[in-house]
Design a protein around this nucleic acid. Sequence first.
DNA 1: TCATTGTTGTGAGCGGCGCTCTCTGTTGAG
DNA 2: CTCAACAGAGAGCGCCGCTCACAACAATGA
Lengths: 249, 249
Amino acid sequence: MHTVRDNARAVLSFLYTGSMNAPRTARERARAELTREILASARRQLGEVGAPGLSLRSVARDLGMASSAVYRYFASRDELLTALLIEAYNEVGAAAERSDRPKAVPENRWLGVWNGVRNWSLANRHEYALLFGTPVPGYAAPHLTTEIAARMPLTLARIVADAKRDGGLRPYTGPECDPSAIEPAMLALLDDGAFTVEETARLILAWNRLVGVIGFELHGHLKNVTADDAAYFEYTARSEGANLGLAFD
Amino acid sequence: MHTVRDNARAVLSFLYTGSMNAPRTARERARAELTREILASARRQLGEVGAPGLSLRSVARDLGMASSAVYRYFASRDELLTALLIEAYNEVGAAAERSDRPKAVPENRWLGVWNGVRNWSLANRHEYALLFGTPVPGYAAPHLTTEIAARMPLTLARIVADAKRDGGLRPYTGPECDPSAIEPAMLALLDDGAFTVEETARLILAWNRLVGVIGFELHGHLKNVTADDAAYFEYTARSEGANLGLAFD
DNA sequence: TCATTGTTGTGAGCGGCGCTCTCTGTTGAG
DNA sequence: CTCAACAGAGAGCGCCGCTCACAACAATGA
């Protein structure tokens, strides 16, 4: 029998794997149901008022239960936010994968995924902030989240790997990265060592910049700076793709 | 005579210009003094616990006064944070300017300013978060803050402008930006039209990426990704400088 | 079958928060 | 000297996260 304390882990596992150990008793079914409802309500509120405004008490009110009862399901507000964080990581990863069209030419795939991530972020700005904005608490089990967080950047890597395999990658130009700057484990993670250190560095840079430029747009730093955010974003995408050797002009 | 309500504007003006209308009466002197003390205490707490943890009540406790008294000086917590925001904008701008060595070659100036901004950010991570992390409230008088916020990017622009004047700028390569993506007013702002639209776009990109890569490092997204953050950062700086035509390899 | 055991929900309560209001004493301008 | 503007104190409102004791209840094993 699992105790209440184990629940958090169970929820994370649920979010990660998409399924839970099948609930055997009525109580377990009710528990799974209510856990989902709490998450759904929290997610709704996150979308409306953002992470700072999300309160456990208001979730409880929304569900017509005592605020203290919610603590049977999530040990703290941070734990609830962590669950939402994982959910959001999965969503942006899914959005990236969904907007990849493996049959298109690499350049169009690249733009498609960049735009897919941007569109998700514009439609879910509070979720984006949760992922890439200022971190608030101690937060989630790092090992679990990093695995999920990799989904989006791996989608980018796959495009470049395919281009490389098909000979569609130009030799890169410009300054090169000190190889010792990159964590060796990253090389293995990225498509089982399909990339050189230099390519890996540029991939990291591209991922980094994709997130960065969206943040600038979302946080208003481009106000009075750019006139057409979508065009500026596409320019960023092309610039970054070219840096990796994709054939933009 | 100014009323209490005017104080906020006075504080902002004080932070911006570095001086205030000379206090004539003892009361005005005391007011200026206490305002500074409140800001100093708030700044101290910001550095320790970050913006979410900063509370007006604890500032009041720190200064040995009733919490309600603080409201004579700052109309709300947001207004206090706004003052800190402006202070931080000025600081990072000053750090950028201080780390520029106008007599050095453009490439070294470029690296110097990038590192200067990074070092300030590492030493003031909560302040960085206030500037470039998730925005929380409605926040400051935009017109005032944008003027101050421009200090740091303008330092970058100056280096490139000097290089261009001295003929040290290579013709740029790679994808170009749709000119209509850039706000025309930006062209005038940047050294009175010293730059082409394309150069302006690349400057914006560089500024954007400088902030972005620091955010990634500060927020832990580079953990298990890079092995040497400083080396990776310098790589970013060189890559960005080369994109603007600076002679990095 | 039934007592035992762990789980679930409640409501009261703690300390903290931002913020408001009223009241008192004080300062400075006319 | 008068009087309006100001500064500070303290009580209080409605939130918040979180804890705890308690009662209702469901699963389980003797």
